[in-house]
Amino acid sequence: MTTDDARRPSFWRRFLGFAREIWGVMRRPSAIFSLGVLVLSGFVAGIIFWGGFNTALELTNTEAFCVSCHEMRDNVFQELKTTVHYTNRSGVRARCPDCHVPHNWTDKIARKMQASKEVWGKIFGTINTREKFLDHRLILAEHEWARMKANDSLECRNCHSAESMDITRQSPRAAEAHQRFLFTGEKTCIDCHKGIAHHLPDMSNVPGWQ
């Protein structure tokens, strides 16, 4: 190992020099630590940062986190409890993040950025009473429908896949509808299955509900 200390331009102004210095440090072989130690510590730091980031995301990705807000707990969560996605014969449950946060890193972060808007909602109290929630509900639902329409109902398909559907085991109406519109790609789950997890908003201006 060698040192390049003598070549350092110590006369530069501080703010310019700093950047330069960092760059220098990056390119320059270390005088004190061995390459092995450096690689290892970089690795460890990476794990800690990534892990911490990951943990933070995982924490905000639980149902307990969602229902920690009364807006979520008193409205949508109560309604979810009566549906097939909360209790059913197979005992498999869908939780809020299963349907509302994609299990995919890039999508996940994009979604988290959008979610900062919710914190504003909390501060400004857009839906802090049942009445306000009901007045606002169509707008919120439309956001979700648009999102699911755009990603071809990705969240639903994480659990239900069209490829694994055995229509001979489905009810006649389901088999018929899926064959005509789902397998042909004409429609996606959310086109036909609105309101499967919560009560519906006022549907009088939603196409297909008159």
Binding site: V84, S171, G195, H199, L200, P201, D202, M203, W209, Q210
Partner: peptide, 24 residues
Amino acid sequence: PHSIEGYEVSRRANKCLSCHARTR
């Protein structure tokens, strides 16, 4: 002759009409 489990019929929405209405 079919299951209606989870079908909402309320002031806001009528799931039955989403299939049985004239246009549907």
